[in-house]
Computed example of a mutant assay.
Amino acid sequence: MNAPGGPFNFSAELAGRTSRLMIYALLAIILMTLDYRGRWVEQMRHQAGLVVEPAVLLIESPFRLANSIWSALRGRQQLLREIGELRGLLAESSARLLLLEELRRENLELRQLLSASKQPQVAFYPAEIRQVDLNPFSHRVLINRGRRDGVESGQAVIDAYGVVGQVDEVFLHSARVVLLTDPDHALPVAVERTGVRTIAYGSGLNTELRLNDLPMNVDLEASDRLVTSGLGGAFPAGLPVAEVIDVSRKVGEAFARARLRPLGRLDRSRHLLVLEATAAEDEPAQEDDATPSEEASREVQP
Rank of each mutant, 00 (worst) to 15 (best):
92 E>T: 07
92 E>H: 13
93 S>Y: 09
93 S>E: 13
94 S>P: 00
94 S>L: 02
94 S>V: 01
95 A>L: 09
95 A>Q: 13
96 R>H: 14
97 L>H: 07
98 L>I: 10
98 L>Y: 01
99 L>I: 12
102 E>L: 10
102 E>Q: 11
102 E>S: 12
104 R>H: 10
104 R>A: 14
105 R>A: 12
105 R>H: 10
106 E>T: 07
106 E>Y: 08
107 N>S: 15
109 E>M: 07
109 E>I: 12
111 R>L: 13
112 Q>D: 13
113 L>Y: 05
114 L>R: 14
115 S>K: 14
115 S>G: 14
116 A>C: 07
117 S>W: 02
117 S>Q: 15
118 K>E: 15
118 K>S: 15
119 Q>I: 05
120 P>W: 02
120 P>C: 05
120 P>N: 15
121 Q>R: 14
121 Q>I: 11
121 Q>W: 01
122 V>L: 12
122 V>R: 06
122 V>P: 00
122 V>E: 08
122 V>S: 05
123 A>M: 07
123 A>V: 04
123 A>K: 13
123 A>P: 00
124 F>W: 07
125 Y>D: 04
125 Y>R: 14
125 Y>W: 08
125 Y>F: 13
126 P>R: 05
127 A>E: 09
127 A>M: 03
128 E>M: 13
128 E>D: 04
129 I>H: 06
129 I>N: 06
129 I>D: 09
130 R>P: 00
131 Q>M: 11
132 V>P: 01
133 D>M: 12
134 L>M: 09
135 N>V: 06
135 N>C: 08
135 N>Q: 11
135 N>G: 05
136 P>T: 10
136 P>V: 10
137 F>I: 04
138 S>T: 06
139 H>V: 00
140 R>T: 14
140 R>L: 06
142 L>A: 02
142 L>F: 02
143 I>H: 03
143 I>S: 02
143 I>Y: 03
143 I>A: 06
145 R>P: 04
145 R>S: 11
147 R>D: 05
147 R>M: 07
148 R>Q: 11
149 D>W: 07
149 D>R: 10
150 G>M: 07
150 G>C: 05
150 G>P: 03
153 S>E: 15
153 S>Y: 03
155 Q>E: 06
155 Q>S: 01
156 A>C: 13
156 A>K: 06
156 A>I: 03
157 V>H: 06
157 V>P: 04
158 I>G: 01
158 I>S: 03
159 D>F: 01
159 D>R: 01
159 D>A: 00
159 D>G: 01
160 A>L: 07
160 A>F: 01
161 Y>E: 09
161 Y>F: 11
162 G>N: 04
162 G>A: 04
163 V>T: 09
164 V>F: 00
164 V>I: 15
164 V>T: 08
166 Q>E: 06
167 V>H: 10
167 V>M: 12
167 V>Y: 10
168 D>Y: 08
168 D>H: 08
169 E>L: 12
171 F>E: 14
171 F>V: 03
171 F>S: 12
172 L>A: 14
172 L>M: 13
172 L>P: 03
172 L>H: 08
173 H>C: 00
175 A>Q: 04
176 R>C: 02
177 V>R: 05
177 V>W: 02
178 V>R: 14
179 L>T: 13
179 L>S: 10
180 L>M: 15
181 T>E: 01
181 T>I: 01
